[in-house]
Amino acid sequence: MMKKVEFVALAVGAIAAICAAIFLDSGLQFLLCEVLVLFLMAQMWNLAAGYAGQISFGPQMFVGLGGYALYMISNNTTIPVWVVMALVPIVVGLLAIPLGMVVFHLKHAYFAIGTWVAAEIAFQFVIKTPSLGGSSGLVLRPGGEMVEGYPEKTVVAVALFASVALIVALRMFLRSRLGLAVLAVRDNETGAEATGINVRRLHLALYTLTGAGIATAAALYYSTTLFLTPLDAFQAKWAVELMFIVVVGGLGTLTGPAIGVALFIGLREFMTANGYSGDQYWIIMGVLAIAVLLLLPQGIWPALTTFYTRMTRGNTQ
């Protein structure tokens, strides 16, 4: 059931999306695209890691699959890019099912490392395969034609609405029976199975769903860059960024990734604007992550809510 606030949020999101497409200049639109794409991916990684306990070092597998699915289908068929975009989650989701069945033989640390290696295998495979563009990558040419105009105009609107819709959808999901099952599995896995939940199938469903989600976000992103290299798509940088965003913001909360993205990009823009180097920015991010984990191991958002409830309780007594 959708609640009133969620309905309002969706409406506001739709209006904001249209405004962003019309009124923002294209530099800002490009930045916003990046922010929103990272948010979408972080929320997906968070659903897998924070709710289902699937901490993976290999989300770049799905970034790559999403990007390559978009480019390969668009370039080699006459299907419009926007239709391909809608096909990406289906294609990648179908690939994720057998992949998930393999990697779910692995647990904990083995799973994290195994998913990373799987992504690395995909990367090396693309590099070795000339029909996929090899190591030099691909240029987006839908139906063989160059892209005209500024795709970020539409992408920013879609990504903004998708971000709001995703939060609403996740809230609804967590209230549903299946969402309850996810929370139960997070709390106690064998206990959950003993209530009749098919834990394996649930894990696989979440893996597929989050993989397809990351791939779709990646497809949105690479539709604005107009070219795609395997080194960029399959690099572990994606895992690093998503982990930062989610862990610092608050693993296993819906608001945490939003805070994480805001910090991550906000600090970067601030530091670049003031003449600091990329390395200096990452040093600060690293220190920030260490400090947050040592002082507030749950992340910023859970710490804030705990602080807030303590404050209000303190006032009423």
Partner: peptide, 29 residues
């Protein structure tokens, strides 16, 4: 050692991840 005191291996692992980034970019700098 401080992260290990939380007795949560995920927290400890993620701390070393922050450490890795700091070391890497300090050296590059």
């Amino acid at each position: 050692e401080r992260a290990m005191a939380h007795r949560n291996e995920v927290v400890a692992m993620l701390v070393t991840f922050g450490l890795a980034v700091v070391l890497r970019d300090s050296l590059a700098e």
